[in-house]
């Protein structure tokens, strides 16, 4: 990585009230305040959002795709975590 680029920030945007912030991309900025301003200009020119989070990219620790099997497979084998696993009589209606 070269030296003179401003730090990189990951940008998360809440598109409307009631929804999660969602990752949309990244932006360079000297500090967090500027990152929010730049993200506003780059990612919300057409009312795509009502709230912005920025996190310095170097602070993000991500899972390794090579570990995906070990990390995420157990969920699949535990189908009893899903309501459809259970048998209930037809007459019971919505449950």
């Amino acid at each position: 990585m070269a030296g003179k680029d401003w730090p990189l920030w990951e940008v998360f945007i809440r598109s409307k009230v009631g929804l999660n912030h969602k990752h949309v991309g990244s932006i360079h900025a000297a500090d967090a305040e500027m990152a929010v301003e730049n993200a506003r200009d780059v990612y919300t020119r057409r009312s795509e959002g009502i709230s912005i989070w920025v996190v310095e990219s170097s602070q993000v620790f991500a899972s390794d795709p090579a570990d995906s099997d070990a990390l995420f497979e157990p969920a699949n084998s535990k189908i009893y975590r899903h309501p459809t696993f259970y048998e209930v009589p037809d007459g019971v209606g919505h449950m």
Partner: peptide, 27 residues
């Protein structure tokens, strides 16, 4: 003005995608 500003934004989206591949924007 709005169109030219959009093009600046397009450049930013794309540099940002390029950086996910480990390339430096400045270089």
């Amino acid at each position: 003005l709005a169109k030219v500003q959009d093009e600046a934004g397009h450049g930013q989206y794309l540099y940002s995608a390029m950086e996910t591949l480990g390339a430096s924007r400045e270089e």
